[in-house]
Every structure is written in C-alpha cells, then in structure tokens.
Simulated scan of single mutants.
Amino acid sequence: MRYSDCGGLLKISFLGKPRIEFNQQDITKEFGSKAIALLCLLMINRNGYCNREKILAYLWPNSNDKSAKYNLRFNLWTIKKNVGLDGNGNEFLCVDRERCSINKDYEYQCDIALIKDLLDDNIDDLEDLETMRHFFNGELLEGYYFKECNEFNEVIIYERNLFEVAKVKLLLRLAKQYENRGDLDSCLNTLEETVKFAPYDEDIVLKIMEIYELQDKNSLAVIYYNTYKNRLVNLLGTQPSKKLTAKFYELSKRPSKGVKLGKTDFDTNNKQRICIKTKCINGIKYFWMASVIKSLLEVEGLQLEDYLTDTQLRDLSYIQPDIANSLGETSARTEVPDVRIAVAFVKLIEKISDSIRLKIIILAENEMDDFSRSLYEYLQDMRLHVDLISE
C-alpha cells in the first residue's frame, strides 16, 4: 500500500502540532484541547474501542459524574459536528451507551495510524519509507499537557516513547535501502539522524564508521569515534565496546601521506591532525580569532558543538557569525564581554587539541590585532598539541 492510495476527506496529524483537515479545510480551531485529546485517545485505540468510564477517568478525573458525562457528550458532539461523512457515506464515530470508537469502515488518513500499520507490515519500499519519514514532525501532541489528567498524560508519554522507537526503526530501514542502492551520502545522513534518538546505540555508531570507510573517509570515521567516545566517557563514565574500539584501531592505522588544509588525516604515529590557514588584520579586534573559528568550521567532519556548550558557541558567534548559522540561528549575539569570548576561544582550542594535533598557519602574523595576540601568546604558554606557525 502506497501513501498515495491512502486518504479520504479527513486528514489528521498528531505528531508535532496537531492539525485536522476535512475536505481540504483546516478545522483544527474548532476543537478544544480535550476534543483533540479524545480524538487522539480514540485513534490510539482505533482497532478496538474505548469504554466511556475509562475515557471519563482519563480526561475528567476530578469532575463529578454529571459534569464529566456532559463534557464527554459535548466533545463527542464537537467531533461529529465537524467531521462529516466520508465518500461512502460512513460516519466517523461509533458511539453507544457504553463505548466509543472510530468506525473501521471510515476512510481517513492519520499519521500515527499509517506509521504503526506500515511498520507492523514490515514495509521496506523506499518511497513509502521516505514519505513516512516526513510524518515525524515532532512528538505526539507536542506542547500539550493536560492539567490534573495524570493517567492520560502517562499514556501520552508512553506513546511518545513508542513513536521514538518507531522512528529509529524506520530510519534504520531507510538507511539500509539507501546503502543497498549505493547512495552512501543519504545512508550516512539518515544514520546520523538516527543517532539523535539512540545516541548510545553502538551498532549505529559502527555502521556510520563503516559507511565512512566505504567512502574512503577513514579520518572522518576516526573523528566520529573520538566524538562518541568523549560523549560516552563524560556523560556515562564508560568506554566504547571492544568491537567498536577494534574498528577504530583498524581505520586509524591507515594514515594519509600528507596533511592538507582544511582536512583531517594522521601522522606517522597515527595521531589525528588538522591543518588550517588563518589571516590577520591589525586594528580589527578579534580578527585572527574569527579567522581561526571560520577555518575550523570549514573542516569536514569537525563539529564545534562537540567541544563547547551552546552558551560558549553563542558567545563566539559574536566575533564569528557563521557559528550562528551552524546552530540554526538567524543572528549572532549582539554583545558579549571580552572575558567570555576569551574563555570560550581558549576552551575550544584546548578541547580540540586533547584528541587532535592542530596546526594553525598564521599569515601576516605581525598584523595580528592586540586582543587576538594576547590569546595567541597565552596559547603558546599552555603547551597544547597545537602548532602555531607564522608565514
């Protein structure tokens, strides 16, 4: 079944900001929060039914019996009023004195229903998988929290976790299809998206390293391993598995012949290294520092967010606006104290040099601005794994 075959007059999205369309008209505003909650609850149980008493306990737990039943009748009426018959004349809801459910014969499209059904069917068609990927626009009922409805909120949290697992499963299937077709760039991008939801899944980390290897980008695989290892040590206090570490040593023993500007490779001792070229202009405060940051941003596979906090990166965006772009922000900070800029810059160089031999070529070093020179001299005194070379 392809998505183009699914449909009907009714379309519902619960992932991200809820949206309800009927006959190509957005009718979301016609539904209050409890009506949307009720609709979501019925959709989660679309292959069965919901007992009225259970719905009351979920959505109006602290109301008296008369008020709760009235609220349920009103919200059922709201749904029926705004969701008309489908193309075959079927009503959307089946309601009696005891139960409520979605009519199984009613034609509609709903993101959470499609995702669950197609994943259960083990769909591996690339077109279906790519379309499903776009349905994941956020969490289930994103931004919604229902006051005093503790049991219902627990249901939503549970379902959110299920959909996160479903997304990982979907992305892994998609990555496999890309790999089978030889589209290694798409495979890699998909795997890197998957890691955001399963950051400590070493099978995914290993697969990313293997894809880099297939692309003859062993140095990027090593960078990725080091980044993962640092995260593992700092956050969980543990080390990568023997299998992953063995892959790292295998790849790190394949050094390149020479270091290239803006690239990563390895020296004869298998030490990872990066070489960048920077410029100086006297009289323009921070210019050399900004040049260093810009050159680092251009190094393939090097992510500054792996070395600094968001706050530190935003501080540096004051002197190098390209950082704001890398963070997905539209503008850099307007004013930052010099001491914070200095601390963030030194920390960046220090953190990178912990795992990488950094070579910084400085053009026209005699033209370096005063503020940058003070930090340049400070870095020289720190005896880091940094080569500062004037040309």
Score class of each variant (00 low, 15 high):
D306T: 05
L313W: 01
L327M: 13
I323P: 03
R357L: 13
I323A: 03
T309Q: 10
L327H: 03
S353C: 06
G328N: 04
V339E: 14
V343R: 13
D310K: 12
I341Y: 10
I360W: 02
L327E: 03
T334L: 14
D306A: 08
I323G: 03
D322V: 03
L304C: 02
S374L: 09
I352D: 07
D354Q: 15
A324S: 12
V346E: 15
F345Q: 04
L363R: 09
L308C: 04
P321T: 09
R357S: 10
A324M: 10
T330M: 10
D338C: 04
Q320I: 04
L313C: 04
R333I: 09
T309D: 09
A342H: 12
R340A: 10
K347F: 05
I356A: 01
I362A: 06
E350D: 14
K359W: 14
D369S: 11
Q312L: 11
M368K: 10
S372P: 07
L363Y: 08
E305I: 03
R333P: 04
D306M: 05
L304F: 06
I356C: 01
Q320R: 07
I360D: 08
F371D: 13
E329S: 11
I349L: 14
S317H: 08
K359P: 04
V339D: 13
A344P: 02
S355E: 14
P321N: 05
R340H: 14
E350K: 12
R314F: 06
I356K: 00
E350A: 08
N325A: 09
N325L: 11
R314L: 09
L316I: 02
E365P: 00
A324R: 09
Q312F: 02
K351G: 00
L304I: 08
T330P: 00
E335Q: 11
D310F: 01
I362R: 11
D315Q: 09
E350T: 15
E305D: 11
K347Y: 07
A342I: 06
D354K: 15
E367S: 11
D369M: 08
S355D: 15
G301F: 09
L313Q: 06
P321Q: 05
D315T: 04
N366Y: 00
D322S: 14
S355R: 08
I319D: 01
I319W: 03
D370G: 15
S331T: 12
K359F: 15
I356F: 01
E329P: 05
L304G: 01
S331D: 10
E367W: 12
E365W: 00
F371W: 03
D315P: 01
L316F: 02
L358A: 01
L308P: 07
A342V: 06
V339I: 14
L304T: 04
S326H: 09
L316M: 03
K351Y: 01
S353K: 02
T309E: 07
D306V: 00
G301C: 11
I341L: 13
A342T: 09
I349G: 05
E329F: 06
G301H: 06
R333Y: 14
D370M: 13
V346T: 15
A332F: 13
I356D: 00
P337C: 07
L316D: 01
Q312W: 04
E367T: 12
I352N: 03
A324D: 06
N366E: 13
T334R: 15
F345V: 05
V343I: 10
V339A: 08
N366M: 05
L358P: 01
L363W: 07
D369V: 10
T309S: 15
S326T: 07
A342G: 04
R373I: 08
E367C: 11
A364Y: 10
V346M: 13
